[in-house]
Simulated assay, not measured.
Amino acid sequence: MEGVIVIDMLVDFVGGKLATGRESAVVEPIASLLAAARKAQRPVAYVGDAHLPHDPELRVWGEHAMKGSEGCRVIPELAPQSSDYLFEKRTYSAFFETGLDSLLRSSGVDTAILTGLHTHLCVRHSAADAFFRGYRIVVPIDCVTAFTEAEQGSGLEYLHRHYGAELVTSADLVRRLA
């Protein structure tokens, strides 16, 4: 069974401190996929940065998505529903010390559909952890983006080559879930 994971679709990443302008293109495809997943009664999990002041990532990216701040909230266009799950992360991976793996296993999920930001960073590290935990990985290419087109392309290539990620479109997945 598939589970949809929404990574870092947060205020600070979409229109905030770390926005590049590319993020808005993935909002509608993610919203469509989430609607289909909920209708098919598939688990939907949001995993977003909620940093503490001494997290190592802040040395690289500066202060962003600080725990309890507006910047670490999911953007309103993708607001979680009552049936969804929310997890906070302090590293690039959606799996590292978040409880996501336990939720997916207890829900019977064997396939992780990864969406969100950024293809070459948090999606990539989440895919690695999903792969090493035995999940099949599906990445809808219109539901992920990176800082640049080059990083997007290399990120998708890496996911496919090293983790066997199935690269599809959100429309393909919506049809599959129907």
Rank of each mutant, 00 (worst) to 15 (best):
L34W: 02
L34N: 03
A35S: 13
A36H: 04
A37F: 05
A37T: 00
R38K: 12
R38S: 08
A40W: 00
Q41N: 14
R42Q: 14
V44R: 00
V44N: 07
A45N: 00
V47N: 01
G48P: 00
D49L: 07
A50D: 01
H51K: 07
H51L: 01
H51N: 08
H51R: 03
L52Y: 14
L52M: 12
H54L: 14
D55E: 10
P56M: 13
R59E: 14
R59I: 07
R59S: 13
R59N: 11
V60N: 07
G62E: 11
G62D: 07
E63S: 08
H64T: 01
H64N: 10
H64L: 05
H64F: 00
A65V: 01
M66T: 02
K67E: 15
K67P: 15
K67D: 15
G68K: 10
S69F: 10
S69G: 02
S69C: 01
E70P: 11
E70M: 12
C72I: 14
C72V: 09
V74A: 06
I75C: 06
P76H: 06
E77R: 09
L78C: 07
L78P: 09
L78Q: 08
A79P: 14
S82D: 13
S83Y: 06
Y85P: 03
L86W: 10
F87G: 03
F87Q: 04
K89D: 05
R90I: 06
A94C: 08
F96N: 09
T98D: 10
G99S: 06
D101V: 05
S102E: 15
S102A: 15
L103N: 00
L104Y: 09
S106L: 12
S107G: 10
S107P: 08
G108Q: 10
G108E: 05
V109F: 02
D110H: 13
T111H: 04
T111W: 03
A112H: 00
I113T: 06
L114A: 06
T115P: 05
G116Q: 04
L117Y: 02
L117G: 03
H118S: 15
H120K: 04
H120E: 12
H120P: 07
C122V: 01
V123Y: 04
H125T: 02
S126Q: 02
S126N: 03
S126Y: 00
A127Y: 02
A128F: 13
F131V: 11
F132A: 02
G134T: 10
G134K: 08
Y135I: 05
R136K: 15
I137M: 10
V138E: 02
V138I: 14
V139K: 04
I141C: 13
V144P: 04
T145C: 11
A146S: 11
F147S: 10
A150F: 02
Q152F: 07
Q152I: 01
G153Y: 11
G153S: 14
G153T: 14
G153M: 13
G155S: 07
Y158C: 12
L159E: 08
L159P: 04
H160E: 15
R161L: 13
R161Y: 12
H162K: 14
Y163K: 09
Y163G: 05
G164L: 06
A165Q: 06
E166T: 14
E166Q: 15
E166L: 14
L167W: 03
V168F: 03
V168T: 08
V168D: 05
T169V: 02
S170I: 00
S170N: 12
S170Q: 06
A171H: 12
A171S: 14
V174C: 08
L177K: 00
L177H: 05
